[in-house]
Design a protein around this nucleic acid. Structure first.
Lengths: 158, 158
DNA sequence: GTACGATAGTCAACGTGGTTGACGAAATAG
DNA sequence: CTATTTCGTCAACCACGTTGACTATCGTAC
């Protein structure tokens, strides 16, 4: 096994990954605020994405995000309060309450995708396209498993 | 300006960065738990690191971590409760309460550094050393600014 | 030597995000 | 028709962050 490089301490890597993530998300939300979505928080985009065009239920949303149905329900409440999601009764099953993205939510989602594309383009202009694709490929190799889990606050905290 | 590559959607990059970060931190804590530190949470290592060998005060810790002194104080309380930090009176200033890493905390810190080095070595063995240094350099280029800020739970959430 | 401003730490209240446990209402299986 | 499962919600709790207010102490200026 190769010995650790003292000039490249291992603890820097996670910090750099976090800083990169944070930079992208901060830039995204600064631009979203400029384009009329100042209330959108980092978590919200992921939640909207997980709801999707067809809508879902709180329970299913919780499963998709890797959190409990109660936590998903509370998050939906907040997104409903700021106008990005809506709840409608399911005529075929009175227990279920469908969660749907509102037009405003869809607008935020569309703009987020565009902004992320622009930010990636900025990275390719600074670093070169090969370096960015290499980073993506390498991260995909190392991080294959735990993709979409949105329990970040609780996970990172306690 | 280069046009966005439809095969490389911009939204994947932040997800990959987060997944990479999460993978490293999860692996770290799985190994820490095996080595006798199951109570250590993701945030705790960063806090211990910020306290440092010389100790600090809660107010200064808050400044280092980019959070309020009250939040820093509460976090110190929790780390004290699990035995990783201790508070001692400052004989030269009765207002201050020095926060110091305990021997147990120092052990956790030392093991964390070793484990991070081993994890980085695993990455270099899988990806090649050049790819990992390239990733580190590129992330350092793009993320230069907002390094050590530990308001992640609140930042990511609301 | 005292009075005053700045600083350290804490308490309280609150918001966001997470958890588990319990429960009623509705669907489904037998 | 009854029994079980499923969906949503309520309640209680914890971790983490915030701001505002307050006490005690330090340092300085008069």
């Amino acid at each position: 096994m190769a010995t650790a490089d003292p000039a490249r301490p291992g603890f820097a890597l996670p910090l750099l990954l976090l800083a990169g993530f944070r930079t992208l998300i901060d830039d995204l939300h600064a631009e979203l605020a400029r384009e009329g979505h100042p209330e959108l928080r980092p978590l919200h985009g992921f939640v909207l994405q997980a709801v999707g065009a067809d809508g879902t239920t709180a329970t299913e949303l919780g499963q998709r995000l890797g959190i409990s149905k109660q936590a998903a329900g509370k998050t939906v409440d907040r997104l409903v309060a700021v106008g990005y999601l809506e709840r409608v009764d399911d005529p075929s099953d009175a227990r279920r309450r469908l969660v749907r993205v509102t037009p405003r939510g869809a607008d935020g989602l569309r703009r987020s995708a565009e902004i992320f594309d622009r930010l990636r383009t900025q990275w390719t202009e600074t670093l070169g396209p090969e370096r960015v694709t290499a980073m993506e490929d390498d991260l995909g190799t190392m991080a294959s498993a735990n993709w979409f889990r949105l329990d970040v606050p609780g996970w990172f905290g306690g």
